[in-house]
Design a protein around this nucleic acid. Structure first.
Lengths: 278, 278
DNA sequence: GCCGGCGATACCGCACCGGTATCGGTCCTG
DNA sequence: CAGGACCGATACCGGTGCGGTATCGCCGGC
């Protein structure tokens, strides 16, 4: 199987329409149809159910869609990492904007003091993006936050674990409570909890404001338009003008440093070692 | 980058010789040279240092070698898994021959009793092979043994942890000791410790007999030609005619169940859940 | 019954892949 | 120091196959 074929297949599988897929691939529809047929013939199975009105994925096709995506990610990562190795400008570290800033600065300082330290490009990104950056080789190392980020497929080391708090407007009815339960927090509506985008970028139905990153969330909280559950360290930054109440039964948030398995770079190893020693 | 180019590159990088690589690929040398040149041109960097007497990998080339191998493994896995999804004969579970046999039979029985259980093909293999089987999609799930197997890049759940023992001939001078240290065990020469193959299949220099799998090891121990450190559960099978002495400072061996991250198969999930409940 | 939408088929030209023959440079050897 | 062996690069050529346009077959809706 050639990556070209996999790229074609993923386009068709995602669009479920040969014409649109061909357009996305900047090519005509007939060669695309033929390429998929050839792929099916070589695999000896059908990837799509064809009706005159459209196509759907077969079971085998659904499996190949998942597998093909990981292959294409790996190819992209291979290309990026090879290019980076030729330029040697150092490592790229990805982290969610706004999160773990104290840990991050400590890590960067400590690593810079290591013998043989190379330049570290810090890549700040929105929530949920970090995983993809690491998977496609745009970043070499990342700071992730379990259970918000999924660490499947990466090697990780736990760095720091903390409880969560809920941030409320200063005068809120629950502001003076010593602690709140998740049940109480989930029921909040006055300033409601925000809605985060799903993996595909869409939002669930509901009443809370839609937010895409931590900056937006902070602003909404400051405006008194949202409450939010967040790790202690983030809540601490908002203590002025807000009430911050612990939520003991919320899942603990663990900051981990993650990297692609089988990475053999000295710089990545040094960074991880430095981080675990903090 | 097409997988064909990556296959060519890996062959050349491993042989470090265009002629031999071409032979291995069953093609002539000139098109191979040209393909590599084209790859280098597209990447905008050199993958090999060329001298008139031979070639060596550049830094970028070394990186690409690692990355390309993971890409090719992923492609192979994609093909295998897609084919398997079309046939639907169930899941393939890989395990080291001879190891964890009790755990394995319990797992298979318990899983078979689950509602919605599918057929489980058990694939018994030599030590060190399991990892590759999982990585290339020949197996869906595997029982691995840390720290002997590396679990990098897989999702795992710990199943069972046990100490290690050393197995000695019945009349051995140390046979009556209540326990032994790793230092004492490492110094054994009368029946020496065996030598296991490295990843590439070669053996280190030394005096011990060369073994490839557990059957060979068992036979050598029975013949009084080798001592060996192994998990308690394995040592227990050899208790007749041998002395089995605990080695408390040997690393504990943990049997884990492992699978490829991002696998969404119900059968794999059921197997893992069943295993963790044992 | 006609039209519109979708995927498949037919056919064509050209790029690219792989083959053979050969070159250029370096090291070993007599 | 000349000759040869070895190795990778270059030159050139034929065939495969990829992508393009034109068109068909099929089904549903108006």
């Amino acid at each position: 199987m050639e990556t070209r074929e996999l790229r074609y297949f993923v386009a068709v599988a995602e669009e479920l329409h040969f014409g649109r897929a061909a357009e996305r691939l900047a090519m005509a529809q007939p060669p695309l149809s033929r390429a998929i047929q050839q792929l099916e013939r070589r695999l000896g199975l059908l990837l799509f159910h064809r009706t005159a009105r459209g196509i759907t994925l077969t079971d085998a096709g659904s499996v190949l869609l998942l597998e093909a995506r990981t292959v294409l990610d790996a190819v992209e990562a291979a290309e990026r990492r090879t290019r980076r190795a030729a330029d040697r400008p150092g490592v790229v570290l990805a982290a969610k904007a706004g999160a773990s800033s104290e840990l991050l600065s400590k890590l960067l300082d400590a690593y810079a003091a290591e013998p043989g330290a190379v330049a570290v490009d810090v890549m700040l990104c929105g929530p949920g993006e970090t995983e993809g950056l690491l998977r496609t080789g745009r970043a070499d190392v990342a700071l992730l936050h379990r259970p918000y980020d999924t660490t499947a497929g990466f090697d990780t080391e736990d760095l720091y674990s903390e409880g969560q708090v809920v941030v409320l407007p200063a005068g809120h009815a629950l502001a003076n409570r010593p602690q709140l339960s998740m049940a109480e927090v989930s029921a909040l509506t006055d300033p409601p909890l925000p809605r985060w985008p799903r993996r595909d970028g869409s939002y669930s139905d509901g009443v809370g404001p839609q937010v895409r990153d931590h900056t937006q969330l902070t602003q909404l909280i400051t405006l008194g338009r949202a409450c939010a559950v967040m790790p202690e360290s983030l809540g601490a930054q908002l203590r002025v003008d807000h009430a911050v109440v612990p939520v003991p039964d919320a899942p603990a948030v663990t900051t981990v440093i993650a990297w692609q398995p089988l990475t053999r770079t000295k710089a990545v190893a040094d960074l991880v070692r430095t981080a675990t020693r903090l």
